[in-house]
Amino acid sequence: MEKLSKRALGCMYTAAIIAGIFEAAAIAAVNVIWLIPHDVQIGKAVSVVLLILIVLNTIISPYFRFHRYRYSINEEFIDIREGYIFVERNIVPLERLHKMQTLRGPIDRIFKVAKVIVTTAGGDVTLRFLDEEKADFIAESLGRRINQIVVEQREENAEER
């Protein structure tokens, strides 16, 4: 199974830091508006614990997510493993693919990475943090494979008739 490039790690850290800033800002707002003026001791203690957890999460989670992320694409399946505390594995048979899409968000563009979203009749699965060139190559080769599968299925149907 393939790993992600170092660019992905930078993207993961940046996304985690931005999310951490937003979460910390929300906690700060609650403290300024309510907990500090009303001197709610337990609230302030919980805020400190949450802030420590946010900082730890921002430092640790991208590292583990990066090292846990694996994917493979062969003639039959897309297989993706990702996660931090809970590891998730998605297996998509290529025969079920209906369409695919490449997507680059603002942070993705800074680090020259992209997402490939594959759509089946049952829902979407996303390959994240791929190098742009790799994402384009995957999208193109999957597109070719989907067309090939459609042609094969038509031929099979014609033979059955």
């Binding site: 505390i85 809970f86 590891v87 998730e88 594995r89 998605n90 297996i91 998509v92 048979p93 025969e95 079920r96 089946t120 009749a121 049952g122 829902g123 699965v125």
Partner: peptide, 16 residues
């Protein structure tokens, strides 16, 4: 099986 569109499996540390 041909009606399954995709499969997801999940594991935490203990399950692993």
């Amino acid at each position: 099986y041909d009606k399954i569109q995709y499969v997801t499996a999940k594991q935490n540390v203990l399950a692993k």
